[in-house]
Design a protein around this nucleic acid. Structure first.
Length: 484
RNA sequence: GGCGACAUAGCCAAGUGGUAAGGCAGAGGACUGCAAAUCCUUCAUCCCCCGGUUCAAAUCCGGGUGUCGCCUCCA
């Protein structure tokens, strides 16, 4: 399996620190607002990375932090007249609502800065003791010139950085590129006691301290957005490697940006779309499917039309699975029978193609291509119905269902219940008032059709369509589904 | 100014040396009372431009042009 490592700027064979186990850390959001689509991309991308590693049999330990102490949070809290920590924790809860909707699995641990003050202060102490950091006026700064490898992740030298640097004036720093490990508290700000007085951590130190605590030195995968390469991740490396003397993360993965009209979506540009607002217009599986339709390192442009196109494509996969389920109704998966060889061999081939795509730096776009190939295979097999025999047919279709479920297990597009994909809209065995009413209307329409009263039948179908209920007449009866 | 990425059909998007996946949209046919869904067929002589390397390049090299990003909080 190949992973593109930002550190080496090339794809490398993935070899975990410990055979069979993967330790990964992904930079999570600063919780001062609802997340936007740009925040959602890494969340979905690395969730998919994790899912695939699990599919491959790795025991994955996944850590995603929340930055709950930060200037932006303090400012927002001040505006709202709210306590910063309670504001942050409120948005942590909101984060989970969006992440759950996008079918993102919970991390094994979601550490927060506010709960790791001791670890952070200890690491800063170590850096001061080792001579990599210095205290000045209640702040503590990391002295970048002391760390030989500074710039190795972002691929530039200190001289490069300073050439065009828009550096803030701060006479406490020995070098303009030095960055804060600890910030002295101003009146009214949340603060913790430390050897340097009351204050709070700088932004970068939290990830170093928390990843070390939960994953140890030299853990496997560290992920985040491209814009974190510098300075955030560069600084994490400087802190961690200086403090421990050991290499930090082995594989650095960075996702590309979401753009709007080809421009980066960001809070500072104001061109961002909240996940919440998008979910009001599109189903969450469409959003996830859309995010995975492009390789994670490429930029991805967002607008409603593109999501609409994605939802049509997704509809095709959904339909295929529903047709498959329909065909398998009444079939006992334990019934035995040798799978029809033609389909069965093709399924093996497709699984191989899917894995090959994912093995190549998580090429979800290519993998989705094989998912569509699977759908075509299922549809045409059902359409032609040329199987070696009934038992062979069901056994092969059952295999196809397994494969579909496996693809989905990795990509996480459709929600599952008890390991089964729960795609709504099969109609049939329905519950609830809407379902009963639709069934009733269909019954009446069928009577009209029997009398060849086409105008009435068509009118019912049209009016239901206006209500986003689609009727499909098939030789074996009427199928209906909700649209969107 | 420094560093970097990208440029593939109407749209989205794979593809890093062997002759262009997949999806959306479109066209024709089958099926249907008509639709829808599904199936079959079709839809880039060619991958921004100009040179070069090679038996062979969308893929490698050089030079352009264009777009975007990082260097400041940012996923």
């Amino acid at each position: 399996m190949l992973i593109y490592n930002t550190l080496s700027r090339r794809k490398e064979e993935f070899v975990p620190r410990e055979p069979g186990k993967v330790a990964m850390y992904v930079c999570g959001p600063t919780t001062y607002n609802f997340i936007h689509l740009g925040n959602a991309r890494p969340i979905v991308v690395f969730d998919t990375v994790r899912r695939y590693l699990k599919y491959k049999g790795y025991d994955v330990f996944y850590v995603q932090n929340f930055t709950d102490i930060d200037d932006k949070i303090i400012n927002r809290a001040r505006e709202l007249g709210e306590d910063p920590l309670s504001l942050a924790s409120r948005y942590v809860n909101e984060y989970f609502k969006d992440a759950d909707a996008l079918n993102v699995m919970r991390a094994d641990i979601h550490p927060k800065v506010s709960g790791h003050m001791d670890e952070i202060i200890n690491m800063i102490k170590t850096l001061v003791d080792k001579g990599y950091a210095y205290a000045a006026g209640g702040d503590v700064y990391y002295e970048v010139r002391k760390f030989g490898g500074y710039g190795k992740l972002s691929g530039r030298t200190l001289e490069d950085m300073q050439a065009g640097a828009r550096v803030d004036v701060n006479e406490l720093k020995r070098d303009p590129m030095d960055f804060a490990l600890w910030k002295a508290a101003k009146p009214g700000e949340p603060a913790w006691d430390s050897p340097w007085g009351k204050g709070r951590p700088g932004w970068h130190i939290e990830c170093s301290a928390m990843s070390l605590k939960y994953l140890g030195e030299n853990f496997d995968i560290h992920g985040g957005g491209f814009d974190l390469i510098f300075p955030h991740h560069e600084n994490e490396i400087a802190q961690s490697e200086a403090a421990s003397g050991a290499p930090f993360a082995r594989y650095w993965m960075h996702n590309g940006f979401i753009t709007v009209n080809q421009e980066k979506m960001s809070k500072s540009l104001g061109n961002f779309f909240l996940v919440r607002d998008i979910l009001a217009k599109f189903a969450p599986e469409v959003v996830r499917f859309y995010l995975l339709g492009t390789h994670y390192r490429s930029p991805l442009d967002f607008d409603d039309e593109k999501l609409t196109a994605a939802s049509r494509g997704l509809e095709r996969l959904k339909t295929s699975f529903n047709l498959l389920e329909e065909a398998l109704v009444g079939y006992d998966s334990g019934a035995g029978g040798r799978p029809d060889p033609t389909l069965s061999l093709r399924l093996d081939e497709l699984r191989g193609e899917f894995e090959k795509a994912m093995d190549d730096d998580f090429n979800t776009a290519l993998a989705i291509g094989t998912w569509f190939d699977l759908a075509r295979e299922i549809n045409s097999s059902l359409h032609k119905d040329v199987f070696a025999g009934v038992a062979e047919k069901y056994a092969a279709l059952s295999e196809a269902r397994e494969l579909f479920i496996d693809f989905n297990r990795v990509l996480g597009v459709f929600k599952t219940e008890n390991g089964k994909i729960a795609i709504q809209g099969t109609g049939g065995e329905s519950e609830g008032l809407v379902e009963s009413l639709v069934d009733l209307i269909i019954e009446i329409r069928q009577e009209a059709r029997k009398k060849k009263d086409w105008p009435t039948a068509d009118r019912i179908r049209e009016r239901l369509k206006d209500l986003n209920i689609i009727l499909e007449d098939t030789p074996s009866g009427v199928r209906w589904k909700k649209q969107g």
